[in-house]
Design a protein around this nucleic acid. Structure first.
Lengths: 233, 233
DNA sequence: GACTCTTGAATTAGTCAGACCTAATGCGTT
DNA sequence: AACGCATTAGGTCTGACTAATTCAAGAGTC
């Protein structure tokens, strides 16, 4: 999925991107286009295209007579899904998961409140279906199935909010949830309280109760943050 | 500021980017690299680099034997600062301002709460300074000066939250505030209630009162949303 | 006759190599 | 300290070639 056949420059990015975001080339490091082209055994044109993409992500800056300089972390486009994926695959995955979870805790409650006002009947039905799916897979080592419904649930809420910026966080949430399931204890079933809360959120959205949908989602978020505190100091 | 001298491909992007995000080429439209290169009077290499950048923003997709296809709006990287700037300069600026303001209303209260816990003494001082600056420029047609302090205030709060994702929204908030000041009624002085709230937020952060900082900031956000409702149906 | 499968021609992006241009940088001279 | 020039690495252009994908025409089948 990550290594789509976007051509040679894509392959270069799949190697260079993770290397830079992982801090392998610390901010201030200087790379030279020609040297990189030789190392990756591609032409200068291809390497230039790759550099342009990294530049548009604000990961590097290209200057004449100097080379390609890695920019400070604070300037990176950390909302770029590609950058998020690269960083989640790297060493500071825990820190990244925490940042994203805090973001979720801010956004999702408001999104749920808006969803309660704007969700269509179809979206309400899908939401309920997801919640029931979560209940059905909440016991007996069915974490993969649970994950699917969980991701779908949050994606629907974000979409139903009617806010474009919220909707585009669906992928981020999916990455966070997937990361949590795949890189932490797979032995225990999900927290029963969280399952119940999801069902209640679905009900609140269906009933059009914005305040209740928001505060219930806030409880889910608090739970997710607490879970992170327990598993990662 | 927008037209940085990033070379020819930058100039192409400054024209093509706004055109695409403005819907001048609706999703599904097909462009051809060679034709574009001719129209912009640049070589294919330069045009290819520009297309690669647009591709990394998920604005277009390049396929063999087909051309460069404009992707559906729902797939765009709407958090890319460049895309945000392009869209804010375009026709659906009002819709965009609303989306971003709703995002602010979700994020900033949580950020303020975290800032109350993590802000350094220096950040607290800067925050108070900004709040005082806002008070000083709140009367007598000093909207430009007020804007500077307002932007700085929110930027400090987001930075002081200690969360990287929040911090990177500083530019977005700056764009929103600037847009509000420059494209709406410039005659009236800012709402006195909002000024007071900013001062109180600075106090709450300094006092380490997270709950108070959060709820006060939520009031600011509600005010901003109400202001939008009044000025844009 | 309608349908499916194969094949090949047309088209467009992808890649490469080499040449030349341009602008910063850094050093040596004055 | 100020100036100027050589160096260096990115910026641009060109032309040729490669490769993938679409589309349509034709062969084969039911």
């Amino acid at each position: 999925m990550s290594t789509r056949g976007r051509g040679l420059h894509g392959h270069v990015l799949d190697t260079l991107g993770p290397a830079i975001t992982a801090g392998e080339y610390p901010p201030g490091s200087v790379l030279r286009t020609d040297e990189l082209a030789q190392r990756f055994e591609v032409s200068r044109s291809v390497m230039r295209e790759a550099v342009r993409v990294l530049e548009s992500m604000h990961l590097v800056e290209s200057r004449r007579r100097v080379g390609v300089t890695v920019r400070p972390t604070a300037e990176w486009n950390v909302y770029d899904p590609q950058v998020i994926r690269w960083r989640l695959a790297g060493a500071d995955r825990p820190r990244q998961l925490r940042s994203l979870t805090v973001l979720r805790s801010a956004v999702e409650p408001v999104a749920a409140g808006l969803a309660a006002r704007h969700a269509t009947a179809e979206q309400c039905a899908e939401l309920t279906e997801c919640a029931l799916g979560m209940v059905a897979t909440s016991r007996g080592q069915q974490l993969e199935g649970y994950l699917v419904h969980d991701v779908a649930f949050h994606r629907i809420v974000l979409n139903a909010s009617g806010n474009e910026m919220f909707a585009r966080l669906g992928d981020v949430v999916a990455e966070v949830l997937t990361g949590r399931t795949h890189h932490q204890v797979m032995f225990e079933d999900p927290d029963p309280a969280a399952v119940t809360l999801h069902v209640q959120v679905a009900e609140a959205v269906r009933a059009g109760d914005a305040d209740r949908a928001e505060s219930l989602t806030r409880e889910i978020a608090v739970g997710a943050l607490r879970e992170l505190d327990v598993l990662a100091p």
